[in-house]
């Protein structure tokens, strides 16, 4: 799809479109999914930033419903892969099958797997073996898949939403840190409040509703992704992101005490990149062309949540990565002290 020629007017229009679309998407999803507005926002950040999102939550919180609703709202090809321990990589990627032609000749034809979609729901990703997980993760990183030595590019946009169940950990294969790093955001799906739960009961125990109408076309999504990349970031903001990530390293000279005691490995380069990228998505959805310190702060938790590797002491003390992120946000100033004083 050809990129629209960037003109000041079209960029203003994109900003307006992003703001309007986010509102429409939220409204469309809101018709199906009760509450979870922050989760919806974070999923949209991932979509616009071109990253992938790992959803973590207990069963029955609407993770799958959210992804299905999102896919229905966006005129994009949707695939769902239910990860199980006996799932094979070829079940994900697809395989070449021997086909007999009408003339009697026989040849191999690629039978594409569910990975060849645009919005992929990798349900309970930690239930499959690492070998199968790696088949998905390669596609996530490379936006391409190699089958029988032939590399097949994914159709854009390619957006993976994986879900994880934090309970029932028996017989699961937790994702290695290197693979977790491939997800732009890790979104925690909270339990619904009483009001939300009441609404859920009301909606789901009545007559089934038709899925929401599509809000965005593929071209519009790609255009928004391009606009997201075009959002400007000032150097002080980038430095702030870099300082946050740098301070998350327990071996850093002036590391935060909680980081020193509870963290084994800090967020790496991908962490800093993800902070800025996700912040760009936030600013775009709010109709701004520049990233602010507040944007960085807003995305810090979902971006760093799965990138900070806790130490034994941290785990033993029950220190969550969100708490460490809060400590980092408190410890790292956005602007020099003299600017703060004025």
């Amino acid at each position: 799809m050809a990129e629209p020629t960037p003109t000041p007017a079209s960029f203003e229009a994109k900003l307006e479109l992003a703001r309007e679309t986010s509102a429409r998407l939220a409204a469309a999803i809101g018709e199906v999914v009760v509450g979870q507005t922050e989760v919806v926002d974070q999923v949209l950040w991932g979509l616009l930033a071109g990253g992938h999102v790992l959803l973590e939550g207990a069963p029955g919180l609407g993770k799958t419903l959210l992804v299905r609703t999102l896919a229905a709202s966006l005129h994009l090809a949707f695939s769902r892969i239910q990860f199980t321990p006996d799932l094979m990589p070829s079940d994900v990627t697809g395989t070449n099958v021997l086909v007999t032609a009408a003339d009697g000749s026989r040849h191999f034809t690629l039978h594409k797997g569910p990975i060849f979609g645009q919005i992929i729901l990798a349900d309970e990703i930690n239930r499959a073996t690492p070998k199968t997980q790696s088949a998905l993760l390669e596609a996530m990183q490379e936006h391409a898949c190699t089958i029988a030595g032939i590399r097949h590019a994914m159709e854009q946009p390619f957006f993976v939403l994986a879900t994880e169940n934090p309970i029932e950990m028996e017989g699961t294969y937790p994702l290695p840190e290197a693979q977790l790093d491939r997800f732009l955001l890790k979104v925690v799906v909270p339990s619904p409040s009483e009001d939300e739960l009441t609404e859920i009961i009301a909606r789901t125990t009545g007559a089934p509703k038709s899925p929401p109408a599509a809000v965005l076309t593929q071209a519009e999504v790609l255009s928004l992704q391009a606009a997201c990349r075009a959002v400007a970031v000032a150097e002080p903001v980038m430095r702030y992101a870099a300082r946050l990530v740098g301070k998350s390293d327990p071996d850093a000279k002036d590391a935060v005490p909680l980081v020193k005691s509870a963290i084994r490995f800090g967020a790496g380069v991908r962490g800093a990149q993800s902070l800025v990228l996700a912040a760009k998505a936030v600013s775009l959805l709010e109709g701004r062309a520049q990233v602010s310190f507040a944007d960085i702060k807003r995305v810090a938790k979902p971006v760093l949540r799965h990138r900070l590797i806790r130490s034994f002491e941290g785990e033993a003390d029950g220190v969550t990565t969100d708490r460490v992120t809060e400590a980092l946000l408190e410890a790292v100033p956005t602007v020099p002290q003299k600017v703060e004083r004025g």
Binding site: A232, V233, A234, E235, P236, V237, S283, R288, Q290, V291, S292, F293, A294, D295, V335, P336, V339, E340, G342
Partner: peptide
């Protein structure tokens, strides 16, 4: 940066500079 903070302008000035 100071002006952005005073005007609560989401760092638009420092970005524009």
């Amino acid at each position: 940066l100071y002006l952005d903070a005073r005007l609560d302008s989401d760092e638009i000035i420092v970005t524009a500079l």
